[in-house]
Simulated scan of single mutants.
Amino acid sequence: MTEAIVPPRDAGPVLVVEHLRKEFPARSRAAETLVAVDDVGFTLERGGSLAVVGESGSGKTTTARIVAGLERATSGTVTVSGRRKDTAARPVQMVFQDPFASLDPRQRIGAGLTELLRVRIGLGRAAAMERAVGLLTEVGLDEQHAQRLPRDLSGGQRQRVAIARALALEPEILILDEAVAALDVSVQAQVLNLLTDIRERTTVAFLFVSHDLAVVRQITDHCLVMRGGRVVERGRTADVLDHPQDPYTQELLDAVPRPGWQPRRRSA
């Protein structure tokens, strides 16, 4: 078998997003459309890690879904490795907050991975089974987990399976949409360490959608801040979080609980 040629990390951006706009029909008669994403653009280097942060309704998830091909942009372009991208495809895979929703509750983990590899990659049965076990090993699981149903796994283990499924398709970009938000702190740390390991040994680029600024600081090199569908700030993650230039970014930072923080009771 010919060894795969891995592109160098400095081979240029793997993702270029330009003038992205997404409109939805408005629910009220007062407006014809709701603009969820408005003139958003950014690049992601091969092997890089970019965070898209903002509160609910900022447009960050809609942007990610357009990049993944799960939503169609009203206008603008998404280019992956020099190719215009209009539909969901192998180069971009997405891991969601709830991994249980992406797993067949009646299918054992190993069988699901094997089927995916046979149908989408074209591997034979034996090769697919071997690769499935290898993928589980890569995400810190083993052959015993391959024999289990999703309900028999913990939340952290299910998220590892979701990551293994995404990696099975050999993506160039892995989108993680609040992928550790539902996990407790100790399990969250384990999954973040796993993602760090993947970054160190592959050229997969991460697009990390999150509201958790502590997670963003740990896992990403660059970040952009969205509000009302627009990008209000961007830069290296440490610079943006340590020296915010936009008042909205400062508001997000001020909202992060700190040691000794106590919730205030609102007056009646």
Rank of each mutant, 00 (worst) to 15 (best):
I198T: 08
R27F: 11
V67Q: 04
G228Q: 10
P257T: 13
F206L: 15
F206R: 00
Q159N: 13
D184R: 12
Q250G: 11
A30I: 09
L136Y: 01
V119R: 15
P150H: 07
I109S: 05
L167M: 14
A255P: 10
L15R: 04
D197Q: 14
V40Q: 04
K60I: 05
A205I: 01
P105E: 08
Q218G: 03
D246G: 07
Q188F: 04
V40I: 09
T63C: 08
D242G: 15
Q190I: 06
L149N: 05
Y248R: 08
A127T: 11
S75W: 10
V119T: 15
V216M: 06
G57Y: 13
P150E: 10
D98F: 08
R72T: 15
V161G: 00
V6E: 13
P247W: 10
N193H: 11
G41K: 05
S56H: 13
V37W: 01
D184K: 07
A205V: 02
D246A: 13
P257E: 10
E3L: 14
G124E: 08
A132C: 12
E71A: 07
G76K: 08
L192E: 04
I121G: 02
P25N: 08
A127Y: 08
S267M: 09
S75R: 15
E170A: 14
L70S: 03
R236P: 05
G122D: 09
D212Q: 10
L70F: 15
P91N: 09
A128L: 12
E233W: 06
P25G: 08
